Each structure stands twice: as C-alpha cells, then as structure tokens.
Computed example of a mutant assay.
Amino acid sequence: MSQIELKNINKSFDGKTILNNISLKVEEGERISLLGPSGCGKTTTLKIIAGLLKNDKGQLLIGDKDVSKVPVEKRGAVIVFQDYLLFPHMTVAENIGFGLKMAKKNKNIIKEKVDELLKLVKLEGLGDRYPDELSGGQKQRVAIARALAVDPKVLLLDEPFSNLDTGLRDEMREFISNLQRKLNITTILVTHDKEEALMISDRIAVMLNGEIKQIDEPSEIYKHPKSIEVANFLGNRNYIKGNIKEGKFETEIGLFNIDNREQKEVIAMINPEDIYLDNSSNEGLEGTITEVRYAGDRIYYKIKIKNKQIRVISNSDKVYRLNEKIFIHMDFNNGVFF
C-alpha cells in the first residue's frame, strides 16, 4: 500500500520556521501537486518524505507505517530533481541500473530491468549513449527511469519541467501523466507553475509561507479559493467591494442582482474569463478599454469603469481597440465572496 500521510510536520532551519504543521494525505495511485512560490517549503516537504531531511515534529506515514526514522533506501520513496543529477561518466543504461547495482542485484536481472525501462520511457536504442549526448527531455526520462528501477512505492518530482523549453515542457507533462496513469504510482509533484498544476493534478495543495492553505481538485481550487491569498496566487482576479442587501449587491461600479439575500459587507472576486464584452448594444456597464494584449487564442483587456480597472480575458475572434468604449456584463452569481 502506497498511501502517504503527513501529520503536523514541522521543520526549522537556524531558528526560522520552514514548515508549520503540514498535514496532507495522498491516496494510493493519486497524483497531487504542491503548488506555491519559491521558498514556501515545497521542496523541503518533498525531501522529508524521501528521507533526505528529518522533520522536527510530526509523523510521516507511508502505508500504515511511520517512516520518520526509516533510512532513505528503505522508505520506498524516490525523488527526481530538476537538474536530473545523472552520472556523466556512465551510459544511459548504467545510470538507470545504478540503484539495482548498489542493491547487488544479479547482472542479468539488471539488464532485463534496464531494457524494460528503456522501452517504457521510449529510449530504446539509446542505452549506450552518455548524458552529454542527450536532449533535456531525454535526460529527464533517464532520471525517471533510474528512479523507477528500484520499484518505488512513491515517486517525488521536484520542478521536473523547469529546465525545458515550452514545447518540450508540454510534451514531458503529457509523458509523465500517461506514465503515472499506466503505473498507478503515488506521485507528488512540486511546482510553482499554476497552469502545470491545474493541468496534470488529481488534487492541488497550495503552499504559502510554510503552510498548506487549501487542498482541492484543480477546478474547485481555481473557481472557489478559500481566501484572497490563495486566489491571488492562482491568477489575476477582479476584486470589488460592496454590500449585499435583499438580493442586491451595491458596489463602487454599479448595482447588481444576486441570489444571496444575506446582509453583509463583502469583497467579491470574479474571474476575468467570466466577464463578457459587447459594443452592439447599450446594455451593461459602460467602460473604456485602457489595455489590449493579444495572445492568439485569447485576448487580455483592462477596462476602466468609473475609477476601477477591470481585467477581462476574451476568447472571441473580435478584437476591441485601445480607448474604445465598451459595455461589460458581470454575473456575480459566478463570483466568490470574501
């Protein structure tokens, strides 16, 4: 069983708290991302799971066993770093088989396993090459194959795509997703890339300042963040202050009908892609376009309404122009209230 559970994990360096009561449960075969900015504790968490660092407090369970004091080689968790860390003087086959050699496995068993993994990671025929003869994507596949050679229970990936160019990054995301699905291996991915986490995770744990702020499915965590802090990290949102009273939301830019009838003062968050533009009628809120950024499949706008700048993302074929008058439509029933 390869379920992982972290219970109130704490870690400090030189008196500075890096991890503060981290609790996380990863189901067997699940793919989860630790998403957060640099320095928030993501890699430290990964290293504690792998056994490369010891937690100060808390429990770490793999299956139903507390492995906090179990040495690295007996945990069943392997980590693949962003720099691959391949041995330059060893061939691809020797790199992949290194862990098995250290475990004193029979040479025939090692060769059989290496051949199997070369096929699995689509590197057949490259076993005799050296790392400096490989592309970035090929090096990454070798590092993954080397990790899988020891039949781990848990695969840990530390920013695995950060050294790759855009096209190769997309290819490797798809490759790792398919491989993880095929092997059904419990996988934890560390990333600061929001799109990456949203695209390839079963669930996402957002980490900020050494704490997990929210754990949820990608669509839920994007559409319904539990705090402005989480919302901000996941993208540029629109925040509009106002008061709810008897089904009306009175704001600095206008009055809106909403389903909520509870009376309270709130900050409403509405996503840029949930706002619609129109210049064919005089309905909606009138504004002026102050910024246009064309990105092929989408267009980014900033629109000034009264003294408020509103962000809009449109996937319409129609491109509106700078300083053009425009009407926007906002449905706060799709928003989140803080």
Rank of each mutant, 00 (worst) to 15 (best):
T187S: 08
H192F: 09
G210I: 11
E133T: 10
A197K: 08
S201K: 04
N95M: 08
I215R: 01
K122E: 15
Q180N: 06
Y222C: 00
V114R: 03
L100W: 01
I200S: 08
D83T: 03
L189G: 11
I109T: 14
V80K: 10
R169G: 03
A93N: 13
Y222D: 06
T166Y: 08
Q214W: 03
V92Q: 06
N106V: 12
L86V: 10
S135G: 12
A205Y: 00
D158T: 01
I200R: 11
L134S: 11
N178V: 02
G125A: 11
V142M: 01
Q82S: 04
T166H: 07
M207E: 02
Q140W: 06
E174H: 06
Q82W: 00
K182R: 12
L86S: 01
G137I: 05
K119E: 15
L117Y: 05
S201R: 00
G167Y: 02
D158Y: 13
T186M: 03
Y222L: 12
Y130N: 02
F175S: 06
L164C: 07
N95C: 05
V142N: 08
A147N: 09
V142Q: 06
K107M: 10
V114K: 09
S201E: 08
N178E: 15
L155T: 03
A145Q: 04
D202N: 12
K194H: 12
R173K: 13
L86M: 05
L155A: 02
R141H: 09
Q140S: 04
S201Q: 09
T186R: 00
P218N: 10
K194E: 13
M90C: 08
D128Y: 06
L189I: 15
G127A: 00
G125R: 03
A103N: 12
I144E: 09
G97S: 09
I188N: 05
L85I: 11
G127E: 08
G127C: 06
V80S: 11
I215D: 01
L189H: 13
R169M: 12
N209H: 13
N178H: 05
T187F: 15
V80R: 03
L168P: 08
E195Q: 15
I144Y: 08
G210P: 00
S177D: 11
L85C: 03
E217T: 15
R173Y: 10
N108F: 11
H89R: 04
V190N: 06
L148W: 00
K119W: 03
P88V: 11
M207L: 14
G76Y: 14
G97M: 09
L148Q: 01
A103D: 12
M172L: 05
F175L: 00
P160W: 05
I109Q: 15
I144R: 06
D202H: 03
L179C: 11
E159Q: 03
I188K: 09
V190Q: 04
L123N: 11
A205C: 06
G167K: 13
L118S: 04
K107G: 09
L183E: 09
N209K: 15
L123A: 06
H89L: 02
R181V: 13
V142Y: 08
Y222M: 12
D193V: 14
I176L: 12
G210C: 02
E159M: 04
